[in-house]
Amino acid sequence: MISSDVIRGYNDTMILSLLLNEPSYGYEISKRIRELTEEKYIMKETTLYSAFKRLETNGFIDAFAGAETNGKPRTYYRITEAGKNYYKDKCEEWEITQEVIEKFIVKENNNEYNKKLS
C-alpha cells in the first residue's frame, strides 16, 4: 500500500483520467483505480468523495443523475473542458515532478549510493 500523503496530490488526476473515456460513478471509479494499480492503491470512499466535491467546485467535473440502480438514481460524473485542461496541466506537472524526484532516488544498480546506504 502507498502512503496516501504522497499520492494525495494526484488523486484528482487519476479520477479525471478515468473520466476522459466516459462518464462514470463512485464505485466504478474506485474499482478501476484498484484494478489498474493492481491493488497497490485503494482509494478510500471518503477520499474519493471529497475529490469529487473538490473537482465539482472547481468546475472540472459535472455531476448528473444516471440510470436507476436498486431503485435509486446513481450520481454520475463527467469531465468538463476545464477539467481536460487541468488534467493536461497535471500530467505536465507530473513529468517535471518525476524528473526532479528521480534525481534523488537510488537505483538498484547504482553502486555509489548502495555503498553509502549499507
Partner: peptide, 16 residues
C-alpha cells in the same frame, strides 16, 4: 448528499 453518495459506493462495493 455526501452520506447518500458514500452509502451508494459502500453498497456497490459490498454487493460486488
Amino acid at each position: 448528499r455526501a452520506k447518500m453518495e458514500l452509502l451508494a459506493m459502500m453498497e456497490d462495493k459490498y454487493n460486488e
